Simulated assay, not measured.
Amino acid sequence: MTLPKVSVIVPSYNYAASLHVCLRAIAAQTYPQIEVLVVDDHSTDDSVAVARALGVRVIALPDNGGCGRARNVGVANTSGEILFFVDADVAMAPDAVAEAVALLEAEPQVGAVCGIEDPEPLLHDTLVARYRGLQYHHWSASGEGNVTFLFPAMCAIRRRVYAEIGPFNPALKQTEEVDYGYRLSRRHQLRLTSRVRGRHDHDHELLPLLRKLFHRARLRIPLYARARRFATGFETAARAWGSLIATAALPALALPVLFGPWWLLVPAALVAASVAADRELYALAYRRRGPVFLMFFVAVHFLVNVTITAGVAAGALQWLVSRPFRQIYDSTFPVEATA
């Protein structure tokens, strides 16, 4: 039986620190039929030199256009029957490509396969990176199965499916994967599986992480309004309620000031309810890192919940007042747009 050729496409922007780890992990794959292409999105560090020093083919773009455009360029300049997108800050397990191909070969109804990242950070082992690794791993692993949310950090797509669905929307810089997941899952199964694994160099500073989460939450609003439903496989109703309840605890802090110390029980109860909404996540943090880290984890996740709620509120307000904002997904949702 002839094995299908796999085109491993690595979009990269200023990831020189992790790119060599990413490319060495690709070189160590057990699957034999691989071609590798790095699409450098106009990096200002030595990413291009790192890739070329390892003998990897590189396309250096003349300006910065985002991951979506870089992936599209990679597809246009490769020839594999299966496209495997890998972020430049991810090191895949040696059998990641082989497992993805095996699943696609065994289940023709599956159009794309996405992997689940290990909870341990790849390079920067800060407290914030440990938080983000555990949080992202659990939210992904708990949605294992058929999803509507694309996880492009490790993602194998049949080329014919990509041709059918069309390219990533280059106008979207932070939500192109959610948009693409919706488009793909309306026609094919999109599978999230722990058979495809890797380690990610997660965000390791708090403010950049919160800033990213705020804008991603804001930019999801017109997509969810257009699709009329949340993505399946990452965002759940319980987590949404957890974010709202955590945010409600902030104004509730005024109650003991106005009415006496016993009212402090109200914000405390709201925080406890927010924790209960995603209790398995906190249990994982306790098992992996112990009680001291759990206290840090609870505090950071509280901030994350409040940030996500603030992003959703900002997005809802922007959706109400800005017609261009409401229409940023129209080009990729022609059915809903004309309904």
Results as ranks from 00 to 15, higher is better:
Gly198Leu: 05
Leu122Asp: 01
Ile165Arg: 03
Phe214Ser: 04
Gly80Ala: 11
Leu103Glu: 14
Val113Pro: 13
Ala100Gln: 12
Ser140Ile: 01
Pro121Asp: 03
Ala112Cys: 15
Ala91His: 03
Leu219Tyr: 10
Phe214Thr: 09
His204Ser: 07
Ala96Pro: 11
Leu210His: 08
Val196Lys: 08
His188Gly: 12
Glu120Ile: 01
Gly166His: 08
Thr78Phe: 05
Phe168Thr: 00
Arg183Pro: 03
Tyr136Ile: 06
Gly133Asn: 06
His200Tyr: 09
Glu120Pro: 00
Cys114Ala: 15
Arg211Gln: 13
Asp125His: 14
Leu213Cys: 05
Leu134Phe: 02
Glu144Gly: 12
Glu105Cys: 07
Tyr131Met: 05
Arg216Glu: 13
Ser140Leu: 11
Pro167Gly: 10
Leu123Ile: 15
Ser194Lys: 13
Leu219His: 11
Leu190Cys: 14
Met154Val: 04
Thr126Cys: 02
Val86Ile: 14
Gly166Trp: 09
Phe85Gly: 04
Phe168Tyr: 09
Ser194Arg: 14
Thr175Leu: 01
Leu123Val: 15
Ile221Cys: 01
Asp201Lys: 02
Pro108Arg: 08
Pro119Tyr: 08
Asp203His: 06
Glu81Met: 07
Leu83Glu: 02
Ser185Cys: 14
His204Pro: 01
Ala217Arg: 08
Glu144Arg: 15
Asn169Asp: 15
Leu206Phe: 06
Leu192His: 14
Arg211Pro: 03
Ala217Asp: 01
Pro208Tyr: 00
Met154Pro: 04
Phe151Met: 12
Leu150Gly: 05
Arg220Gln: 06
His202Tyr: 15
Ala106Trp: 04
Gly133Val: 10
Tyr162Arg: 06
Ile157Leu: 10
Val113Lys: 11
Pro170Tyr: 08
Asp118Phe: 08
Leu104Lys: 07
Arg197Lys: 14
Arg191Ile: 15
Leu123Cys: 03
Ala106Pro: 05
His138Met: 12
His200Gln: 09
Ala98Asp: 13
Pro208Val: 00
